[in-house]
Simulated assay, not measured.
Amino acid sequence: MPRWLVFIACIAIAALAGWSFWRALPAPDAPVADPIVVSETGTRSGANLIAIEPVMRVEDYTSADAFHARLADYLEAAREAGVLTPRSIAVFPEHIGTWLVAANAPRGVYRASSVDGAMIALIAANPLPYGGSLLASEEPDRAAAAIFRMRSADTAAGYQRAFSALAQEYEITIVAGSVVLAGARIEDGAILTDADGPLENISAVFAPDGRVHGALVRKAYPIPSEAGFTAAASLDDYPVFDTPAGRLGVLICADSWHPDVYAALGDAELLAVPAFLQPGDVWDAPWGGYVTPWPDDVPRGDAGHLTEGEAWQTHALAGRLASTSARAGITAFLGGSLWDMGSDGAAIAVNGEGVHTATRTSGGQVVVMWVGD
C-alpha cells in the first residue's frame, strides 16, 4: 500500500476515533434548581388555573427524564403550597417542548454558545438523517425545518412521556405548553408524526389520568421567527376540551392577540395561553406593534405608546376575555435563557373581577388563580 494512502487512512481513523469520543462524552449535569415563588389570586375553591413559569436551561433538555424532573419541581412546589386539586389546570409556556429536539444529543450541542452553534453540532452528529430531512423540507428556512423534521418522532415521544407522567403523578389537567412537530396527529392515544407533513407549533392537553386528549391545538399565527419553518394552521374545527374544571380553550401565544381565534373557541369557559416572549428585558420596552396581521379592532397608534407588558394586558387575553363566553383565563411565559435566547414576561391572570399580573422575579414562578366552582 502506498505511503500516502496509509497516511490518509491513519488520519481518517484518528478523526473517526476523535468523533466517536466526542459523541460519547456524557451530557452535562442538571443545573442547581432556581427558587420557586408560589402566589395566589382569588378565594380558594375547587378549581383553579395555574401558570407554571419555569426557568429552563439547556441542561434540562439532555433527556426526557431531565426535562420531566425540572418541570416536576414546579408541580411539587404547587402541591406543597396546597393549591393542587382534582380540578386544577396547569398551563406550561409556549415552546417548552420544542427544545426536546436536542434530547440525547452529543455534549457539544449543550455546550454551544448560540442556537446556531447547537444546530450545527446537532447536524454534525446526524449527517445522513439530516440530509434526508433537508431534501424533504421545502420551508423558507430549510436548515431549521430539516432539524425539527429529522427529530420529530423522538421529540413527540419525549414530550408525551414527560407530560403524561406529570399529569398522572399530580392528578391534574395539564396544558403542555407547545412543541414544533411535523405532521402531528393523535392515534390510539399517542402523539404521532409524519416526516413528510407540515411543521406546526402545537399544544396537547393531558387529563389527570395521563391520557392525551384526542385533539391538538395548532398555532394559527406564527410570528416571523417561526414562520420560516412552521406553517400557519386553519381555525376550522378548533378544539375545546372538557376538563373537570370546565370547558377549556387554548390559544398559543400570538393567537391570543387575534379576535378570530377567540371566535373559533365557541363556548369555552376557561382560557389558557402558553407564551414565549423574546428577547430578555423587553417587557418594559416600547411595544413595536403586531408582527402578525394587524386586527381591525386595535389602534395602530398604540405602537410606541404602550410598553410590551401593557400591550399584553390590553390587546391579548386580558383585554379580550370580556368579549368571550369564558369566565377566566391565564397566560404563562417561559423563563430562563436557552443558548443565546433570552426571555421575558410575567404571568397574567384575568377574570370578571379584573387583571392580576405576577410580580417578576429572577427565579421560577407558580401563579394560581382560583376560578370558583
Rank of each mutant, 00 (worst) to 15 (best):
A143H: 15
A144C: 13
A144W: 11
A145I: 09
A145M: 11
A145C: 13
A145S: 14
A146R: 01
A146G: 04
A146W: 06
A146K: 00
R149E: 06
M150L: 13
M150W: 04
R151W: 13
R151T: 10
S152I: 01
A153T: 14
A153W: 08
D154F: 15
D154W: 14
T155P: 06
A156M: 12
A157C: 11
A157E: 13
Y159V: 05
Y159T: 09
Y159N: 01
Y159H: 07
Q160W: 03
Q160L: 06
R161I: 07
R161A: 12
A162W: 04
A162F: 00
A162E: 02
F163A: 03
F163H: 07
F163G: 01
S164N: 01
S164L: 00
S164R: 07
L166G: 07
A167H: 07
A167C: 08
A167I: 11
A167E: 00
A167K: 05
Q168V: 13
Q168A: 15
Q168W: 12
Q168L: 15
E169P: 08
E169N: 11
E169Q: 14
Y170P: 03
T173K: 00
T173G: 08
V175N: 00
V175A: 03
A176C: 00
A176K: 00
A176H: 00
G177W: 02
G177I: 04
S178Y: 10
S178C: 15
S178T: 13
S178M: 13
V179L: 09
V179A: 02
V179S: 10
V179G: 01
V180M: 04
V180E: 03
V180A: 06
A182N: 08
A182G: 03
G183V: 05
G183N: 13
A184E: 00
A184K: 02
R185I: 06
I186S: 07
I186W: 02
E187I: 09
E187Y: 11
D188C: 10
G189Y: 09
G189P: 07
G189M: 03
A190P: 09
A190N: 14
A190T: 14
A190C: 11
I191P: 02
I191M: 05
I191R: 05
L192A: 02
L192V: 12
T193G: 04
T193V: 11
T193A: 07
D194A: 11
D194L: 09
D194Q: 10
D196Y: 12
D196W: 14
D196P: 11
G197V: 09
G197Y: 12
P198E: 10
L199P: 07
E200T: 12
E200W: 09
E200F: 11
N201M: 15
I202F: 03
S203C: 15
A204G: 12
A204D: 03
A204Q: 02
A204T: 07
F206G: 05
F206E: 10
F206S: 00
A207N: 14
A207H: 14
A207P: 12
P208E: 05
D209G: 12
G210F: 03
R211M: 12
V212D: 06
V212R: 01
H213E: 13
G214W: 03
A215M: 15
L216D: 04
L216T: 04
L216Y: 05
V217P: 00
V217N: 00
V217L: 11
R218V: 08
K219G: 10
K219I: 14
A220C: 13
Y221L: 07
P222F: 04
P222I: 02
P222A: 05
I223Y: 12
P224T: 01
P224V: 08
S225R: 10
S225T: 08
S225M: 09
E226P: 03
E226G: 06
